[in-house]
Amino acid sequence: MSRPEHLAPPDIFYNEDEARKYTCNSRIIEIQTKMCERALELLLLPENESCLLLDIGCGSGLSGEVLEEHGHTWIGIDISRAMLDIAKKREVEGDVILSDMGQGLPFRAGQFDGVVSISALQWLCNLDNSKHGLRKRLDVFFSSLFACLRNGARAVFQFYPENDDQLNLLESAACKAGFSGGRMIDFPNSKKARKVFLVLMTGGVTTVPVDSLAQQSRCTVGKNMKNKNGKKDPLRGTRRDWIMKKKDRFRNKNKEVKADSKYTGRKRSRF
C-alpha cells in the first residue's frame, strides 16, 4: 500500500477534494475519534477539569471534536488550508491556525496544558526532507513544542511511522529538545489493530540517554502513569484489552485461542 506522504506534500495532498472525502468517510471518523480518545487518556489530565489543549495537524477537526466533547478548549494548527476551511464550515469550537509544524509552533511559552496530534507526525518526514533539511525541521518543531507546554504537561502523538529508523529519529529529536518518554504501542502483534503513540513528557525524568530512550520509554512512561486513585491504568488499558492483546500474541504464534465474545475479560460471578 502506498503512503500518502510519498505522493505529495501535505498541503497539496489534502486539497479540497481530498479534505472533503476524508471528513465525510464514516470509517475514518470512527478511527480518528477512537485514536484521539486514547491519546487524551494518555495525556493524564487532571480529572474533571477543562484544559487548554493544542491539536497539531488538526485537519478538519475530527480529533478536535473529541477534545470538545470532554469539555476542553482547543486550538488547532494545520498546513492544509482546505482542511481548515472544512473545520470552519463544520463550526468546530476550536480556533484554527494555518501553520507548518516544521517551521516551529507560533506560540509564546508555557501556554498549553497538553498537546495531541492524530495521524499527522509522519508527514513531518515527507518526501521533500532533503530540501527542507529534515533534522533541522525536527529540532525546530520539538523545541518549539517543549516551549509552548506548561511545565509538567505532555504531548501525545498517534502516527504511522514508516519504519523503525523514522521512529528512532523522532524519539531522539524529542529527547534532544528536553522531553522524556517515548513510544507506546497498542496491540503490537496485531497487524490491523497496531497503533503507535509517541508519549512525550516535560519535567520528570530528564536525563534519558538518546540511544536507550527507545528501550527505556516503556518503563519511564509506565512509572509516571501510576494512577493516584488506583483506577484503570490508561497505558495498559482495561483487563479486556490486556486479554485481547495476549490472545493476539497467541494467535500470531498459531496457538489455539478461544473466540472473542462479549464476555471476554469479564469477571465471572461465583456461586
Binding site: I75, D95, I97, Q103, G104, P106, F107, R108, S144, C148
Partner: peptide
Amino acid sequence: MKLLTHNMLSSKSLKGVVVGYP
C-alpha cells in the same frame, strides 16, 4: 481568530525576531 488565540500567538519563528509578541 479568537482573542484567546491572539493572546498566545507569537512570530518568534521568523528569522531574526526575538520575542515577536504581542
